[in-house]
């Protein structure tokens, strides 16, 4: 018995253009949305310092201050960099949702791939019952 060969439909030029634009649009929407919605970059906080107008007040030693000056900074222009810190506190529910999304994505990926792969193997090697 001959192997069953799947013959895919021919895609029109318009269909090809639509698929290309769909992917391009999906990339831009999904990846730019956090940037446009100002949700990107996570939480940053400013730590309190004694005095933002002096290197000593910003907690910088003489050697550190000398390097800031060589890089073209004054205490005022460097203060926002020196006082900025990441805020690593997080909501456990957010973490659980993130884990669920990642695990769910890979589960979906492997489940769908498995069914598609079976079709590939059946066509390449023939169905088990045909051998």
């Amino acid at each position: 018995m001959a192997k069953e060969i799947y013959v895919p439909p021919k895609q029109s030029a318009f269909g090809q253009l639509f698929d290309s634009l769909f992917l391009l649009g999906l990339v831009l929407v999904a990846l730019f949305a956090p940037l446009f919605l100002k949700l990107a970059g996570g939480g940053k906080i400013d730590i309190p310092v004694q005095d933002k107008s002096t290197w000593e007040g910003l907690g910088q030693t003489a050697q550190q201050a000398a390097q800031w000056v060589k890089l073209g900074f004054t205490p005022e222009s460097a203060s926002s960099i020196i006082t900025s810190r990441f805020d690593y506190s997080f909501n456990p529910v957010e973490l659980a949702v993130t884990i669920l999304v990642i695990v769910g994505y890979f589960a979906l990926l492997f489940a769908f791939s498995r069914s598609e792969y079976r079709e590939v193997i059946d066509e390449r090697f023939g169905r088990r019952s045909e051998q």
């Binding site: 999904a30 997080f90 973490l95 999304v101």
Partner: peptide, 22 residues
């Protein structure tokens, strides 16, 4: 990545999930 960039992580996963369904 979640520490500080969790939103990008979720956005990226959603992109790949939608692309996979497509």
């Amino acid at each position: 990545v979640f520490l500080g960039y969790g939103t990008q992580l979720i956005a990226m996963m959603i992109f790949f999930a939608v692309a996979s369904l497509w």
